[in-house]
């Protein structure tokens, strides 16, 4: 059996980000569910404008990592630093305010609300109107609402969805729902966005478009993006650093080329040679 020695985590932060404080610094993260260790000794660093990938076979613990990063689960071990701040003991909405936004593997939109309102919910913390303004519709309510609407339409235009603003989110086609989730996450003004299988259920041309859009989002908003994906063309195409997870442990870390040729990864995906 190959010895699983992860590369030092600094190695995959792109050079342009190397001299800045990493947006995400995860150290020795681990969680146990009862007697089962779902994630163990997870170390990962994300540069401020990096696109990183988290891959691995089904049940490897990828989504669990996302749930740990957003404090949906409380880690048993280790620490998470977002922009240098330890998120220990924070609740999910506080972690969001620190700068982590996410999408979900099984789409979680506010399906009875309009597309525009979904994005406005993402803008919740940047909309400045207090309870009194909300109840009376005075005291800067209209100004705040107009600004939120303008910003929401601007964000929707990233995916050319501004014409769908008045539609009910739940009635959108599948691909549009996935894109809307990304827009909503983007609306929370994150420093890092976690995308859980953004290309799931998309056809190859949609996937290519998504790939370009992810890159475009990174360039325009100057944020880091970390994605879980099974579509290798997408992962290898846009990720600068990739971590491979198997049975809750990182078995390999590196650039796409390094990952492609790593024997431990091939073994995890295809099984041991001659077995």
């Amino acid at each position: 059996m190959n010895k699983m020695v992860p590369l030092p985590s600094k190695a995959i932060v792109p050079e342009r980000d190397a001299d800045k404080l990493p947006i995400l610094d995860v150290r020795h993260l681990g969680i146990d569910f009862g007697g089962l260790t779902a994630v163990d000794d997870f170390n990962f660093t994300m540069g401020r404008t990096e696109i990183g990938g988290l891959i691995g076979p089904n049940g490897a613990g990828k989504t669990t990592v996302f749930n740990l990063l957003t404090n949906v689960y409380r880690p048993t071990r280790g620490s998470i630093l977002v922009d240098g701040v330890d998120t220990l003991g924070m609740s999910t909405h506080q972690v969001n305010k620190l700068g982590i936004a996410r999408t979900f593997q099984n789409i979680r939109l506010f399906s009875n609300m309009t597309v525009l309102d979904n994005v406005k919910v993402g803008l919740h913390n940047s909309t400045k109107s207090n309870l009194w303004a909300s109840v009376t519709h005075g005291f800067g309510y209209y100004k705040a609402e107009r600004q939120a609407k303008e910003r929401a339409l601007e964000l929707l235009s990233v995916f050319h969805m501004q014409d769908l603003a008045g539609a009910e989110a739940g009635s959108l086609p599948y691909g549009a729902q996935r894109r809307l989730e990304i827009v909503r996450a983007l609306a929370t003004d994150p420093g890092i966005m976690l995308l859980d299988e953004p290309a799931a259920g998309m056809n190859p041309s949609e996937t290519t478009e998504l790939m370009e859009n992810i890159r475009k989002i990174r360039d325009t908003f100057q944020i880091a993006i970390m994605l879980i994906e099974h579509d290798m063309s997408l992962v290898m195409g846009i990720c600068e650093g990739i971590a491979v997870l198997n049975y809750g442990k990182i078995i390999a870390k590196g650039t796409p080329d390094e990952i492609k040729s790593n024997p431990a990864v091939i073994e995890a995906y295809l099984g041991k040679k001659g077995a």
């Binding site: 949906v72 909405h93 936004a101 979900f104 979680r108 399906s111 609300m113 919910v121 919740h124």
Partner: peptide
Amino acid sequence: RAITAIRDNRIAAEACGIN
């Protein structure tokens, strides 16, 4: 909107920074 968002999906609402 925050209240309705909680109704539609509590987990997503929380991930959007809603207390």
